[in-house]
Amino acid sequence: MTTILYARVSTIDQTIAHQEAHARAAGFAIDTVVSDEGVSGVRVPLAERLQGRRLFDMLRSGDTLVVRWVDRLGRNYQDVTDTIREFMRRGVIVKTVINSLTFDGATKDPMQQAVRDALIAFMAATAQAQAEATKEAQRAGIDHAKANSEAKYRGRKPSYSREQFDMVRDMLGQGTGVAPVATATGLTRQTVYRIKDDPVASEAALVEWRL
């Protein structure tokens, strides 16, 4: 039985290494890392990604698939739910680093199946909703940057990267407390609070500094 980490990054500011380090720090013994870089989770289904296709070929019954969160599989409700259910049908256990969720197709109890399937649906819907919210925040950030493009002073350079910003938004969206988010991202609590309290301005700062 093999434990495979699937990592996906969609921008140059995100890194596969960070997702792997986060998974190992959470206690996962990773045998193999499969990753797609520069791939949108909204527009490109997992089965159509180069390494996503490889992942479908590699996983066997009894294997464990680890992802930072379900949004690494995709940010489209139908794609994510179909993907997780397909893996479960194959006997693959799907686990997330954030929130320590486990999706296992082994249970035959109808009540447990109902709870599991409802959780999958909720997580997939949340992933899509967050993608849409992030897109709106980016649009607002770009508008803000354009409106202030003539200003000579851009303010202090953000103390967080695009990947850290996305991770903070993801974890806060799942109800994770500020302290655990700060620990997981390597940011100070003050920085996490700043992103939490004004995500549009935080996004705008990244855009203004082209981060």
Rank of each mutant, 00 (worst) to 15 (best):
25 A>D: 15
17 A>V: 10
128 Q>D: 08
163 E>H: 09
54 R>T: 11
164 Q>C: 09
117 D>W: 00
36 D>F: 06
111 M>L: 13
46 L>K: 05
60 R>C: 08
181 V>C: 06
160 Y>K: 06
68 R>N: 09
61 S>Q: 13
80 V>G: 02
80 V>C: 08
206 L>V: 07
178 V>K: 04
140 A>I: 10
51 Q>D: 06
202 S>H: 06
56 F>P: 04
207 V>Y: 02
182 A>Q: 05
185 T>S: 10
116 R>Y: 00
37 E>N: 11
60 R>Y: 04
182 A>N: 06
70 V>Q: 00
39 V>L: 09
151 A>N: 15
77 Y>S: 09
124 A>R: 05
23 A>E: 03
169 R>A: 02
35 S>V: 02
103 F>E: 02
62 G>W: 05
145 A>I: 07
25 A>I: 06
155 G>D: 06
188 T>R: 07
69 W>K: 01
68 R>K: 14
13 D>V: 10
17 A>D: 13
210 R>I: 09
11 T>E: 12
9 V>C: 08
119 L>I: 10
93 I>L: 15
76 N>W: 02
126 T>G: 09
167 M>C: 07
149 S>V: 14
78 Q>W: 02
160 Y>L: 08
95 K>R: 15
47 A>H: 10
175 G>T: 07
73 L>S: 02
88 M>Q: 15
105 G>K: 00
34 V>W: 03
187 L>K: 01
207 V>C: 04
181 V>F: 01
168 V>G: 03
180 P>S: 14
59 L>P: 02
4 I>A: 04
170 D>K: 01
137 A>S: 11
157 K>P: 05
114 A>V: 10
175 G>V: 05
130 Q>K: 04
76 N>M: 06
206 L>A: 02
162 R>A: 12
149 S>A: 15
8 R>A: 07
199 P>Y: 07
58 M>N: 01
70 V>R: 04
158 P>M: 08
69 W>A: 01
55 L>W: 04
124 A>M: 06
1 M>H: 12
153 Y>T: 14
102 T>A: 15
63 D>Y: 00
8 R>G: 04
98 I>Y: 04
188 T>D: 08
34 V>Y: 03
155 G>P: 00
126 T>W: 05
95 K>E: 13
207 V>S: 00
126 T>S: 13
120 I>M: 05
136 E>F: 13
91 G>Y: 00
166 D>M: 09
158 P>D: 11
146 K>R: 13
42 V>Y: 07
177 G>S: 14
81 T>F: 01
179 A>L: 08
56 F>Y: 15
3 T>V: 11
2 T>S: 15
82 D>R: 15
104 D>S: 11
158 P>H: 06
202 S>K: 06
181 V>I: 14
204 A>R: 04
127 A>S: 14
164 Q>G: 07
149 S>T: 14
